[in-house]
């Protein structure tokens, strides 16, 4: 307990009075020097002229703007559908759907659903993943006109299960068996479409009409 009222009022000797004015003055000058350095060195400016410099924009590595699943060159990921990320997610933004892997009577990942609209980017899913499958990326331009488009599917391919893939002759054949699929769709394969169910030609015509 501090009894401040009991403290005697401190008397400052006259030399202390001037010394304090002097040190205060010097510290103010130090502050002025620092700010002048910023003014005279335009390279210290951190602001980016965003829409103009979109091509050269550099975002910080640590920026958490989009959850992604790491796929290797062959399109494989290491997710085992263990649901740990789903349990760690504080606001149920992750849903992991698995499917049967009949040969081994186990399950494997079918769809990894991530809801950007409810995600708080707390990074817990990335931290708990035992296989470092998940990663936060700094791609931040995720605004869309339809809220449903904020529900992502992070597992990028549809098509044959891993057992089927394993029976393929080589990596090239596996790549051909894997079909890329839209980040928005569930198990639907793209079947050569640009967006699920929408062939690219249709999208172009819509664009011409100014509807997209």
């Amino acid at each position: 307990m501090n009894d401040t009222s009991a403290q005697p009022t401190r008397r400052i000797p006259i030399t202390g009075y001037f010394a304090r004015i002097f040190t205060g003055f010097v510290s103010l000058l130090k502050g002025l020097k620092i700010t002048f350095h910023y003014l005279s060195h335009p390279s210290t400016v951190v602001t980016q002229q965003y829409p103009e410099n979109r091509a050269t924009l550099k975002m910080a590595e640590r920026l958490r703007a989009q959850l992604t699943m790491i796929h290797d060159d062959n399109g494989y990921h290491k997710c085992t559908a263990c649901h740990i990320c789903e349990q760690a997610c504080p606001n149920a933004s992750i849903h992991v759907a698995e499917r049967a892997k009949p040969a081994l009577s186990k399950t494997e990942l079918d769809t990894f659903i991530w809801r950007l609209d409810s995600c708080t980017f707390c990074n817990l899913c990335v931290m708990v993943c035992p296989f470092q499958v998940l990663q936060m990326k700094s791609t931040f331009e995720s605004s869309v006109y339809d809220q449903r488009l904020l529900i992502y599917n992070l597992s990028r391919y549809a098509g044959p299960t891993s057992t089927v893939l394993a029976k393929q002759a080589d990596d090239e054949a596996r790549k051909n068996a894997v079909e890329p699929r839209s980040v928005y769709d569930g198990p639907t394969a793209l079947n050569g479409f640009f967006l699920a169910g929408i062939p690219k030609e249709l999208l172009v015509t819509l664009d011409r009409k100014g509807e997209v």
Partner: peptide
Amino acid sequence: KVAAHFQCRLGPM
């Protein structure tokens, strides 16, 4: 403008 550059910003652009 001056304020912006003192604070490592660009100000009105």
